[in-house]
Design a protein around this nucleic acid. Structure first.
Lengths: 356, 356
DNA sequence: GTGTATTGTGCAAGCGCTTGCATGATAAGG
DNA sequence: CCTTATCATGCAAGCGCTTGCACAATACAC
């Protein structure tokens, strides 16, 4: 009887490394091997060790498909996203992805990337009905997002990166946008600014709406109303930040402060201000929210930019961990986590000019 | 007998959407359904239509695991990469990933992301023996890369992004680094430059070695020898470009031209030159290779940078397409493709100062 | 009308694993 | 020494699909 355990070393004999041959080689049944490998109770320590040693030597790894078929699990999670988000230069998506990758690796899961061009729903349906993943992550919820209902109907575990309005419960991880923007607005108000322009994101996203509301709340809390047209709903890019700032600086009563949704936009604002010969922190103030995107830190602008800081990568990790917990039954249905932020004061905010 | 084909519409009844129930509902055997769905010959058009309609109505999609187990295929390819490449800000990896994603989506395959921390070999082994993918993509080959032999031994189809020395045949897609660098060097030589500093990548990678050799070849072709210490083997970042340029500008006989491996490095060089009050294209020349990384184009520097241009995203697409062809038997074993480049002349290269 | 193709469909055996239940062996209890 | 609990292991039935082969029905030839 060939003892696979003895043939370790240089040779790779994956070809025959299935349960059956292992069983044959060890003189045990497939069930025993399987249980030993999974550390099921009832298998004596000695046997287990023997099995594990043999498996290792043979380079045995259970066939994922067969295992999946038998268990109904794939130990794979899916990340569903618009293909475009990998193509645009200015995005925090890669950071989220990095976080997810880290968590998935740590938990020994696989990550299936499911980009879509325009029909996200059908990708989700396919993932669900073909049972290629145990759960999915979806991102950037709209203000009212139909995916929640769909995924619930499909009974596919999922975690959303971001919140949304929905009848039904769902799990999400989100930045504390509301409080971050209220805090930033408060700060600017404290410094005497009233003519603040918010360079926000596109209106269809929930987080954008939340930020707008937070901005208004901060004003309202002091019995003030934000100036009309204070909030600009534009994309999250340097170019847009630049254009918007340039345009608003031409206002009859130009803003004394800009509040940006991302460091990308803030960069553009800085460029516009420089072009106008305005010194940030002295002539005009800028603050923003900083997701901690790689290579685009509020700290690296000059002057360094006052911002609410969070780690979008950390969010990615959190999301994946929660999804896996959900899948493994280690957590119950709606896990809702709002990540804290930290306000980091730097030199980009100063007192509003008295005359302004 | 319930006719699933009639119950189309709002209801989602994925729960029972397996072959067996479909067969039952249609009064056909599972084999027939399976064959009809896969357009096997011998199934009359009429039956096929009926089956497809019913399947669609029922939201049926074959269970990927079961199908995989039966066919030995998963229609999934793996991308194996150091987790780190998703964490660093300056990388062309995301662009490659975008290209791969595009191709994979177009060919209706899935993409499994397999990051590793340090032990790539064991990830590859696992992928192979657990049969979770039909093939893998590996990147950035070393000068002599053990992965080739490993993957061949594992009999896992694979395509390498980049070339390497190897006894055995293997498939790859690579930029034409050799000729691009020879061409760039030629250009600088034409302009009279001799004291050129090459800011290359880290020496362990094959493409770095190829570029160094190309540089020397261009000199040799004119019976010249490059100045000693001409080639700097450093990382591909702005910071490194800056530091290296600063250092070399302090040479007793400072370079009259810099040749950079990436736009990232070139940016750093520009910064260093500006700091020295040198005008690019007049006082000193710079050229580089431009992979077309999102958000980091040679065109956007000022002055715009003369460069050999390729599309790293296109390379990603190509790689995935070739791997899929290989898997599907549409291509035979070693497919080796070297992507062309285009030399784009801009304003960053001028004549070497006579006295220099 | 018989013989042979051709056509449409089904049977059943896997694919490689997990797992409920059964079984034989050993240990413990009286 | 027999009974019962405990332990270590195996049997066999799936999981949901694909596919080689067989078969019945129909079409065609003569």
């Amino acid at each position: 009887m060939p003892n696979l355990a003895m043939t370790k070393g240089k040779r790779l004999h994956q070809d025959t490394a299935d349960l059956k041959s292992l069983a044959l080689a060890l003189g045990l049944s497939q069930s025993t091997i399987s249980r030993a490998l999974r550390a099921h109770p009832g298998i004596p320590e000695a046997t287990r060790r023997r099995v594990i040693a043999a498996a290792e030597a043979a380079g045995y790894r259970p066939n994922a498909r067969a295992r999946g078929l038998a268990t109904g699990r794939t130990e794979t999670i899916g990340l569903v996203f618009p293909l475009q988000r990998l193509q645009l230069p200015e995005t925090n998506f890669v950071d989220v992805l990095a976080g997810i990758s880290t968590a998935v690796t740590a938990r020994n899961y696989n990550l299936l990337l499911s980009p879509f061009e325009d029909d996200e729903a059908s990708v989700l349906r396919k993932l669900a009905s073909s049972k290629s993943v145990d759960g999915v992550i979806i991102t950037r919820p709209l203000v009212r997002d139909p995916r929640i209902a769909l995924l619930n109907a499909l009974r596919l575990p999922f975690v959303v990166h971001g919140r949304t309005e929905a009848q039904e419960p769902f799990s999400f991880v989100d930045t504390d946008n509301d409080n971050a923007f209220e805090r930033l607005t408060d700060l600017l108000l404290d410094y005497g600014h009233r003519r603040i322009v918010v360079i926000n994101g596109l209106a269809q996203f929930r987080y954008v709406a939340a930020r707008a509301a937070a901005f208004e709340r901060a004003f309202a809390a002091r019995g003030l109303a934000p100036p009309p047209g204070a909030i600009e709903f534009v994309s999250m890019t340097e170019a847009t930040g630049y254009e918007t700032a340039m345009r608003r600086l031409g206002d009859p009563a130009p803003p004394t402060a800009f509040l940006c949704g991302s460091v990308f936009q803030a960069r553009g604002v800085y460029r516009a201000l420089a072009q106008h010969g305005l010194v940030v922190g002295r002539d005009i103030s800028v603050a923003c929210h900083d997701d901690g995107v790689r290579g685009c830190s509020a700290m690296d602008l000059s002057p360094p930019l006052t911002a609410t800081a969070t780690s979008i990568r950390g969010a990615g990790e959190e999301i994946a961990l929660i999804l896996i917990d959900l899948i493994e039954g280690k957590a119950a249905a709606p896990v809702q986590k709002i990540l804290p932020f930290e306000l980091v004061l730097r030199n980009s905010v100063g007192l509003a000019k008295p005359g302004a």
